[in-house]
Every structure is written in C-alpha cells, then in structure tokens.
Design a protein around this nucleic acid. Structure first.
Lengths: 229, 229
DNA sequence: CCAAAAGTGTTTCACGTACACCCATGC
DNA sequence: GCATGGGTGTACGTGAAACACTTTTGG
C-alpha cells in the first residue's frame, strides 16, 4: 500500500473479446474466473493495465497470459466506464476485440493452467461484470465492420476456399449470399491470389485455394479503393 | 495525499473535440491552457474524471466548465493510452467528440473566464499533448460517419435550408455534390419535414426551411432502413 | 432590370440481384 | 454410378451520375 495520490483514482483494466470461426459457427473465447468477484463464473479475458505499458500491450499481454493466444488482429472497441460496473471499486475498462485463426489456436487455449474455452456466440454462459454488454457491443461492431474492411481474412487460415469465405460472411452477417454473385464480386476486386493448390481430404471435387493479397489491398486503399461486400 | 493503492495507477482524463459548422467552414473549439504543462498553448477542452462519475458525465461537465457548451451531441471516440502522452505522469485519456449548433454556441464560448475560441479545422494552432492526433482521429471519424448516420443535423439549426444541408456535406466530405441529385436523394428518404417557412434576410429568392424528423428516422431504422448520403 | 440563388426532369450507365445447370472427384 | 459440392453466364431492374434552364425575389 505505497502509492499515494491526492484524489481517488479509478482502476484501469483491459478486456478482450476474442472471436474465432469454426466452420459456420462464430465463437468467442472465455475464461473461468478463479477469484472473487464472480469466482467460478465465465468472463472475458482481461486484467489490470500496468502503469508502464500501453493499452494495446496490456491487452496482448493478458491474452497470452490467460489464454495463450498470440499474434492476432487486435483493435480497440470501446471504453466502459459505468460507476458500478465492478462491485469492488471504480474500474474503467478499455475493451478490445481480437480475430484469430481458430485452426491455429484451438489447442493452445486449452493448455493454459486457467480454464479457457470457446463458446458459440449465440450460446454463451452468463458472464460476470458487464461482460455480456461488452460482448454484444463487439459482436455488433464485427457485423458492421466486416462488410467494409477485410477483417474476415483474419478469421480464416492463410489459404482458404471461396466457399469458406462465403460461409464466413453468411455466418457473421447472418444471411445467405448467392454463390455466383459472391464470387463475381470478391474476385472482381482482384484482392485474392489464386493458388496452384486445392483443398484436400474432401469426399468430392476439391476446391481451389486462395490467399488474400494484403499488399495489394493497402496499395489500392491509398488510391481511394473501398472494400465492400 | 491520502488515497493509497497497492500498485501505481494511471490518471484518467477525458478530452473533447467539439465541432461546429460556420457557413462552409468546419470549426473546432479549443481552450488556452493556463497551467503547466503546455501553459499558454491551445488544447482540447478536458480534464480529470472524478471517481464517482461516468466518462460521459465527466466529458459533459468539463465542456460546461471550460467552454459553457451544453446540451450537445456527444459520442465516445477512442481511448488514448500511450505511456508518454503526458509529460507529468501516466495519463490515459478517453476522447469524445461533440457536435454543436454553432448559432447557439457562438457567444457562450467566449463569455467564460478561460479563453476559448473556434478555429477552422484546417488552420489550428499547434496543440499540446497528443491533441493534434486526437483531433485528426475525430475529424476522420466524423467524415466517415456522417455519410451513414444523420449526424449532420446536429451541426445545423433546427430549421435549415437544403442548401445549408448540402453545403454541410460538401464541407465535411470535402467534395462538391450535384444539387438536383442531392435533393432527390435526401427528400426521397422522407426524413425532412417541409415547413411553411422560408429563410429571411437574404438578397434573393428565399429558400424553404426544413426540419429533420428524428422520430421517423428512429422508426424506420428499427425496420431496417439505413441512412446514406 | 439585374444579380443571385431556388427549384425542377430526363437520359445514361453501372452495378446489384435473381436464377439453373454441368462438371469433377471420392467412395 | 452416385452423391456431393465446385464452378460458371445472362437477363432485368434499380439506383447513381451527368447535365441546363426557368423562376422568384430583393435591391
């Protein structure tokens, strides 16, 4: 108890909403709390911001510590500052959302000492604090932003089929898309590099694999191009 | 010096980017600092968050205290948390942006004891802290959002002409719009109520006045309507 | 009567949308 | 050979964009 201030100060935390895509199921990574308050309840990974680290650094650090998740797309979501959002004391939380390639992270999340698990976004347990609210805000942001920014590729493996990509949009936007129109539009942007590979281990004709050309996207963006599905 | 904590804590502030529209000039409200650091320099209005008030409350309180601005559209922008952004100590700032009807606030801002003034967005003085960065972020957000949400009306008087509205979009989006197409589109949405009044004190044919029908907008939004210019 | 801005329709083109069949592959 | 999904083109309608002149009013 050795840090003193003239006025009382709110504590500052970060919380992370980690999204992953499992076939046609949007999932979120939760941890089970081992301390009060809300001990035993599921919650978003997160924790206190150290005084000598940036907010983004804190978010990444907590993600690694609590879930093993690393090297992911991370973006600030919103800052939640209701006075009573934490029963202990005044805590302001800067929320982030992360997009991970589930194929890379399926195992790691389970190997940590703390209990971490993926839940379908529509079937989450009751969460502590105002985390239900944070989760809903993140979901809404993802739905809104995925149409205008190439976020979706962060949820897929490096190499993917057009069907996977279409399914991603159908899952997140929650509506069916026409196959021919979808392919016309996405290929018409010229941002997908067609690979000389096809998917394997499927019991039917194998689909061609593509890779997102991030360099080209950045180049076009500077020239006024706008991504849109 | 009486509040003690086990770990050091960042201080928490709010900063506000207040936009106003003066004819065809987008302006921002700045205050001149009377204390170190950056004493004498211009900066965004803002200040420390009290431990018993929400972030939004703090932003509104600081706005009133420092500029006299009241009853404005206020929205959270982003939280800035670089470690060295304040030379005194670690300070995390939650930034908000506000849209005001300049006609209502032109006088008040100047009557406060502290010096406050409106600057053209493209001609601001050098700002203290990372406020130049916050300002740029807010400007970008406004430009991006004004096309998809009826934010613009917050910058105009209750009653306005179509010319004023078009000029608003031209100013914020920084490109010319076709008069006939603009009118067709905006009137086609059915969100403007045509009044039985015309502008006064102009040296030519007076234009009809309109009012934005917020109720109708909210009703349509629930039915899936999307505002777009 | 002149200056200044208000107000008004039509044509063209691009793009979104709807829609159905053959093909390649693994079992 | 059959089940499964991969891959492909066209027709139609809607909406965006380009574009110029007449009307009203105040001075």
């Amino acid at each position: 108890m050795s840090y003193k201030y003239e006025y009382p100060r709110a504590a500052l935390t970060v919380d992370c909403v980690v999204f992953g895509l499992d076939e046609d199921d949007l999932k979120v990574l939760l941890i089970r709390r081992d301390m009060e308050p809300f001990a035993g309840r599921w919650a978003l990974p997160g924790g206190f911001v150290h005084v000598d680290e940036t907010l983004e650094t804190a978010a990444m650090r907590e993600l690694v510590e609590e879930t093993g998740v690393q090297n992911v797309y991370l973006e600030q979501l919103y800052t939640f500052g209701d006075v009573e959002r934490d029963p202990r004391e005044r805590v302001v939380s800067v929320a982030y959302y992360a997009l991970v390639k589930l194929s890379d992270h399926r195992v790691q999340a389970a190997t940590d000492a703390r209990e971490a698990a993926w839940f379908s976004i529509d079937d989450t347990p009751s969460l502590g604090f105002d985390h239900q609210n944070i989760l809903a805000t993140a979901h809404e942001r993802l739905r809104g932003k995925v149409r205008y920014q190439p976020l979706g590729f962060e949820l897929l493996p490096e190499k993917f089929t057009l069907r996977q990509l279409q399914q991603l949009y159908e899952t997140i936007l929650d509506r069916m898309l026409d196959k021919r129109n979808f392919r016309k539009k996405i290929l018409g942007m010229g941002l997908l590099k067609e690979l000389d590979e096809v998917e394997t281990e499927v019991a039917h004709r194998a689909a061609r694999l593509y890779r997102f050309d991030k360099r080209k996207y950045e180049r076009l963006t500077k020239q006024g191009f706008n991504f849109e599905i």
